[in-house]
Structures are given as structure tokens and as C-alpha cells.
Design a protein around this nucleic acid. Structure first.
Lengths: 158, 158
DNA sequence: TCAAGATAATTCAAGTATAAAATTTTTAGG
DNA sequence: CCTAAAAATTTTATACTTGAATTATCTTGA
């Protein structure tokens, strides 16, 4: 069954319009993401993946399994192994055995990691506040709504 | 409704709202980007950076200097070297000497590269069309406007 | 019970990314 | 001319990312 496209009908978006939207979306998010990466590297001596993992761990005081972290951040398992290794080396996180399942570990922030992240999170929020200044509430609310709508559609697909 | 927000009177957004927007933006674009990467790998045996470089080259029939590519794609120079090396190995692009400046090269798609990209671009556009189906014209136009506005603000900063 | 089979994590190879240093070539000032 | 600065690119070092293969450990059903 194929979709019939009626030429000139205003309500049906064309593939060109959809492509345009995607390119704009990618551009905007990369502009912001690159800026955040630069600042994390330059000012906090960290990286976005490290920040993301710590953020996930911070929200789970009881710890998360490796696989749980990778599911939440939508990155591969092997990836998380390396990042958690680094965090552990730096004394920011540690692996704890799971009683009853010797395959799995729980990863937790150490007190040092928790304190460290609290600072970083404050700084991070201020960056975003600065970077996104110049958008008014209508812009923000409108975009949040539409992005939610979009993400919902995308997640439905699976 | 219990909120006191009045259309046309945009109150100042809080940093929490801005942070929320950023997280939504990042989520949506990663959902799409990951899907595109998966398909490029699985169906076209390619990668997003390769596709991006070829896309830039396709739009510049006379070729682009390495530095010009990295400026357009906003990635580092050293990065482009590796990607162009790969494309050249596969016979999709080649380096041409710039008459009068032996420091620089022009990179061009080969006929094979051009044909190859034409196919990929068609497929890519169809993917986006499919992935973003479910958004109506209002969603798309509204988002494009706001993303443009956002990107403009971000680019002003520099 | 006990061999599949599923699950958790790690390791590996290949590719992508950056910043900084190095190399080669061009351009300008004296 | 000649040398210092600038420009274009590559190289290097480090880190992130994925998907596939591997190891180790459960879980299950005949």
C-alpha cells in the first residue's frame, strides 16, 4: 500500500520538508552539544559521556547495573565498561557485587563522586541557562511540546 | 488550568525549563541520529561522517579544500584527513593539487563517488521521510522556525 | 540432572573525534 | 633576497563508540 501524495495540498509535508527539519534539528543540537563538550573539557576536565554516566548514577543512589546504565543512556554495553573504568580509577565510582548474581555488578558513585557531580551539575545548568538565553518561554514551551511529540512517535516505532 | 501564563506575555524562563528543553532536544536528535547510523551501516555499508563528507563534496562539483570541509561540517581538520583517506581508498573521492598552492588539496568525488552518493541520498531522504512521518506540517514548520531561531542565537555568540 | 539457551559484562577491531605538535609551503617586511 | 609569520594539512596522543566475539554465570525444561 503506497501513500498517494496530492500535489499542492498544504497539510501533507513533503519529504523535503522533513529532511529540512532533520538537518535543522541536527545542527542546533550539535551546536549546543559541542559547546558543552568544550566547556566540560576546558573548565571541568571531564567529558560528556562521563557527565552523563555520573548523572544517571546520581539519580540512582542504590546503584545501577552496567546494562541498566547503557539502556538509560542508549549506548553500547562495551562503551559503559570503559567509562566506568575511568570513573573508578579516579575514585568517583565503584563496582559492588550483586548478592545472588555473580555475573552482574552494581555501579555506585562514591561520596567523592557524588560531591564532584553536584558541583558539575550546578555549573552545567548555568551553562545551559546561558547558552539558551535569548529564547523566551513561548519558544521553550513550544519546542518542548513538539520535541516530546516527536520522541514519542520515534519510540512508538519500536 | 491552574497556570497564570497568558498568551503574548512571555515570562522569563527558568534555568530548569531551559535544561529541560536541552535534554529533550538531545534525546530527539539522538534517537534519529542513531537510527540513521544503524541504517547507513546495515543497509548502505557506510557511516554518518562518510555520508556527511560526501554530501558536502556533492554540493561542490569543483571540489573543496580539506579545511573547507572541516569548517562546513564543524569537525576538526585531523578528522577529515582520515575520512577522506578512507573515501579515497574506496575510489569514491580523490585529492587534486591546487595550482599555485602546493600546501592545499582539492577533494572531489569521483564519478563512482558521485553515483554512489546519489543513490545513498535518495535512500537517506526516504528514511527521514519514514522516520518523521507522523508529524504534520504545523509541527514541522513550527519546529523549523524555532530551531532556526535557536541556531541563529547560538551562532551570534561567536 | 544437565545440556541448551539466555543474560551480564568484558574484550576486541575498526572507526570517529579532538587538540596540540609537526611539516611543508606561501607570503610579507626589512 | 631572506627570514619570520601565516596557512594548509598531516601526525600524534588520547578518548569515545559501536557491534561482534568471548567469558562467566544463571535459568530452564526434557
Amino acid at each position: 500500500m503506497s501513500t498517494s501524495r496530492i500535489a499542492g495540498h498544504a497539510k501533507t509535508p513533503t519529504s523535503k520538508e522533513r529532511l529540512r527539519l532533520w538537518l535543522k534539528l541536527l545542527k542546533a543540537s550539535r551546536l549546543i552539544e559541542d559547546e558543552i563538550r568544550r566547556r566540560l573539557r576546558g573548565e571541568l576536565n571531564s567529558t560528556l559521556p562521563r557527565f552523563d554516566v555520573m548523572s544517571a548514577l546520581d539519580r540512582a543512589p542504590d546503584g545501577l547495573k552496567m546494562s541498566e546504565i547503557s539502556k538509560r543512556l542508549r549506548v553500547s554495553n562495551g562503551n559503559i565498561t570503559g567509562i566506568v573504568d575511568k570513573l573508578a580509577e579516579d575514585g568517583l565510582a565503584l563496582r559492588v557485587a550483586v548478592p545472588g548474581d555473580r555475573r552482574a555488578n552494581l555501579v555506585r558513585l562514591t561520596p567523592k563522586g557524588r560531591a564532584n557531580f553536584a558541583e558539575q551539575a550546578t555549573t552545567h545548568e548555568a551553562w545551559i541557562d546561558e547558552i539558551l538565553s535569548g529564547l523566551d518561554t513561548d519558544d521553550i514551551e513550544g519546542m518542548i511540546q513538539r520535541l516530546d511529540h516527536l520522541s514519542d512517535k520515534l519510540e512508538e516505532r519500536t
